[in-house]
Simulated scan of single mutants.
Amino acid sequence: MWLNLLGRSAKKILLRVVALLLLSLLSACSQQIERQTCVPLASEAQYCLSSASAVLAMSSQQDISLSQMVSFTHGQENHELLTQLELNSQRMTLVGLAPLGQALFTLVYDGQTLQSQQSLLLGEQFKAEYLMAIMQLIYWPTEQINQHLTGGELVTIACDMPLCKQLIDASGALITITYNDIDPWSAQVNVDIDVADIHMQINPID
């Protein structure tokens, strides 16, 4: 058992070290962009990023670190990336790596501004603020999300999974989020964004 625990800890530490090393390479072939902190999620619904303070207040930890494998499906297109999500009292940081380890982006939200440093390969079509907003919809308390959401509401719904949420507006469901564990940080998370025909699956890496 101890060997398994040590193995999982070493793997998480290695992922964080690799992410930091690749970020140093990213700076040599990337662009720095200040992003909008409010994003439209549909014709009426708009979400503005919020700080991690309420999330940390509900946690026994002073900071949160989560390694993830994220899969995207849009129509016939499929993509995967590794992410490292870091939360502390000052900022929320999200690092993205391609499956083979190429540095793709780093996002830093300090509660006021969202800075995006991203590979030139991503081009201008990559909208970092949307990815950050989706991460907050998944992990932030529902009450906090709704304080920063206009034209819609995030609600918990009955389903055959341990936890399910929907972002709804007057026209119906916009985004459906399902968790295979009552603890979102431990769960495999599926996100269906019907209006954009996008499906995401997020798996924590132990």
Rank of each mutant, 00 (worst) to 15 (best):
residue 148 H to F: 10
residue 115 Q to G: 06
residue 139 Y to K: 02
residue 166 Q to S: 08
residue 140 W to L: 05
residue 163 L to K: 15
residue 173 A to C: 06
residue 141 P to W: 05
residue 120 L to H: 07
residue 122 L to I: 06
residue 122 L to F: 00
residue 129 E to C: 05
residue 149 L to T: 06
residue 161 M to V: 13
residue 172 G to K: 09
residue 147 Q to P: 00
residue 146 N to Y: 02
residue 176 T to Q: 15
residue 148 H to M: 11
residue 113 T to L: 12
residue 154 L to G: 06
residue 187 A to T: 00
residue 139 Y to G: 04
residue 189 V to N: 03
residue 142 T to G: 00
residue 139 Y to H: 15
residue 151 G to W: 08
residue 112 Q to D: 14
residue 141 P to D: 06
residue 136 Q to C: 01
residue 109 Y to K: 07
residue 151 G to R: 10
residue 133 A to R: 11
residue 178 T to I: 07
residue 169 D to E: 13
residue 185 W to D: 01
residue 140 W to N: 02
residue 121 L to I: 15
residue 178 T to Q: 13
residue 128 A to I: 03
residue 167 L to N: 08
residue 177 I to R: 02
residue 193 I to P: 09
residue 125 Q to G: 04
residue 114 L to D: 09
residue 128 A to C: 08
residue 170 A to Y: 08
residue 111 G to Q: 11
residue 193 I to V: 15
residue 181 D to N: 15
residue 193 I to Q: 08
residue 184 P to Q: 03
residue 162 P to W: 00
residue 166 Q to P: 09
residue 188 Q to D: 14
residue 144 Q to T: 14
residue 180 N to I: 03
residue 122 L to N: 02
residue 120 L to W: 11
residue 148 H to P: 02
residue 176 T to Y: 01
residue 181 D to K: 05
residue 148 H to S: 14
residue 141 P to C: 08
residue 109 Y to R: 06
residue 124 E to G: 01
residue 156 T to A: 13
residue 154 L to I: 13
residue 135 M to R: 14
residue 185 W to M: 09
residue 134 I to M: 12
residue 150 T to S: 15
residue 118 Q to K: 12
residue 181 D to Y: 00
residue 160 D to Q: 15
residue 152 G to H: 08
residue 152 G to Y: 03
residue 170 A to P: 04
residue 183 D to G: 01
residue 127 K to Y: 04
residue 186 S to I: 00
residue 170 A to W: 03
residue 191 V to K: 11
residue 129 E to S: 12
residue 138 I to R: 08
residue 161 M to H: 13
residue 124 E to A: 07
residue 127 K to N: 13
residue 136 Q to W: 07
residue 180 N to T: 07
residue 111 G to Y: 10
residue 139 Y to M: 06
residue 117 Q to I: 14
residue 143 E to T: 08
residue 126 F to Q: 02
residue 160 D to R: 10
residue 117 Q to N: 13
residue 191 V to N: 06
residue 189 V to A: 03
residue 143 E to F: 01
residue 166 Q to K: 09
residue 189 V to K: 01
residue 187 A to P: 04
residue 133 A to V: 11
residue 110 D to Y: 02
residue 191 V to Y: 03
residue 185 W to A: 09
residue 172 G to F: 05
residue 159 C to Q: 06
residue 154 L to A: 03
residue 172 G to Y: 09
residue 121 L to H: 08
residue 168 I to S: 02
residue 139 Y to V: 05
residue 187 A to K: 02
residue 123 G to H: 01
residue 159 C to N: 13
residue 147 Q to Y: 05
residue 122 L to T: 04
residue 172 G to T: 11
residue 116 S to R: 09
residue 114 L to M: 07
residue 166 Q to D: 12
residue 184 P to E: 05
residue 148 H to N: 14
residue 130 Y to M: 14
residue 152 G to I: 02
residue 119 S to A: 11
residue 114 L to F: 07
residue 157 I to M: 03
residue 192 D to E: 14
residue 164 C to A: 12
residue 158 A to I: 13
residue 157 I to D: 10
residue 135 M to V: 12
residue 182 I to G: 06
residue 153 E to I: 06
residue 136 Q to R: 07
residue 165 K to C: 10
residue 178 T to K: 10
residue 120 L to Y: 09
